[in-house]
Each structure stands twice: as structure tokens, then as C-alpha cells.
Amino acid sequence: MNSSVQPLLALDGVHTHIGPYHILHGVDLAVAKGGITMLLGRNGAGKTTTLRTVMGLWHASAGTIRFDGNDISEFATPDVARLDIAYVPENMGIFSDLTVRENLFLAARKGPLDAARLDWIFGFMPALKTFWLQRAGLLSGGQKQMLSIARAMVEPRRLLLVDEPSKGLAPAIIQNLIVAFGALRDEGVTILLVEQNFNFASKLGDTVAVMDNGRVVHAGTMAALVADPELQARLLGLSLDSHQ
């Protein structure tokens, strides 16, 4: 990571409490402009909480969150989103009573859906075109995940926060996701991706941060982590088991 350039997103000593539980214990994280940063770590390490805290869905009890140099720690969720930060939650957040079209229509906050951009999206996710006027609740899990990511793509965004997109998906679909995220990166979007699947993460990530017990315990390039099995074993333990 080039430290002379200001990071797009920077968390500095962020603590988050959820009710009586203290989840984040001072997260320091810098996400550079452009490229894909992978946020790894075992279950309960605080990855999801980190994304939700950035989105303002939970409020940091201490520390600062900066986006493009501006402090957004106190921002309400809609105001965070209006900075062109898109969020794909773990549960996908699909509006299941609405059609695929209506889901995307609501995601296009600034205006009507752009036909050319839709065609570009349909290139990665043809199912969305097929089921354009169907209720989103009827889609399969993988299709819902596609729709959720497509919502984050309908308008150009600056930062994408994606929570475990590969969870429960078949390998063929994961391949599609890799292509789609790659296309977004080429468009210049910065992506912060929470992942447990190291195989998937290692194919896509440029940089990586590893969390444990509510802190970031390692940050560096993905290439360095891939090249160092010992470090992997120490940091990720269980994740190696699914390395295929």
C-alpha cells in the first residue's frame, strides 16, 4: 500500500458496541483508492460489524471513520450512501415483494435506469434479464446475490462494501462474481470485500486485511499473503481447509 497517497476509506481506532456487547476493539484500517481489498478473518472477528459501522447502521462509540479525508463517523446511513458508497449486506437485503426491475429502479437514486449500463450488467448476470419482471423473492440464492450486487452497480459508485458474496454459492456462480467484481475494478471502483473463502479472496484481492477479536491484526498485499503459507496458517487457520 502506498502510504503517501491518502486512502479512500480510513478507520482509526474504531470501537463499536451493540447493546451490552463490545464488538470492535479499535479497528485501524486503510483502504486505498482503486483495487479490491479483502477483509478476512474467522467468524465473529468483527468483519460484518466493521462494514455496518462504516455504513452508519451501527455507530462507533469511539474512533473516527474518514472517507476521502472527511470524517463520516457521525453520519446517518442515508448520508453515507449519498457519498456514493454502496453496500451489499450478508443477507443480500433483497426487497422480495418487489420485482427485479423495481429493486434496481430503487437502487438508481439519481435518475432513471440507464439502458446501456443495464446491458453491461446483464452481460455478467443474464438471469436478471430473464426474470426482469418477476418478484425478487422467487429468485434462487445465487440470483438474489447477483441482484444485490447489480443494485450496487446500476450507477457508478466510488466505494463498494460487500459482505461475503460467495457464501452458499456454487463454484460456477462464484466465477461469475469474480468476473463482475473485476469489471467494476476496471471501472475504477474501490471495493472492500468481506470474505471467509480464501480461495475466492486470493483470486480477486489486491490488498488484504485480516481481523481477529475486533481488531485488524494484519494488513498487506494479497500476493505476499498467498506466497507465505506460514503466515496464512497463522492468520487464517481454518480457512486453509477449504483451500482447493
Binding site: L57, A76, G93, L98, L106, R109
Partner: peptide, 24 residues
């Protein structure tokens, strides 16, 4: 209408509507 869709979406998942940038 967009307003109506937002209300229906909000009934299902208020957080997500906010995460799309709308003030619920």
C-alpha cells in the same frame, strides 16, 4: 410510484432502503 415502492421496500427491510441512500 417510486414513493410507494420505497414504502413497500421499507416495510420489508428498512436498513437496506437507508443503505441505498433514502431517508426513511
Amino acid at each position: 410510484t417510486k414513493l410507494g415502492l420505497l414504502i413497500r421496500a421499507g416495510v420489508q427491510d428498512r436498513e437496506m432502503v437507508e443503505a441505498l441512500g433514502y431517508r426513511v
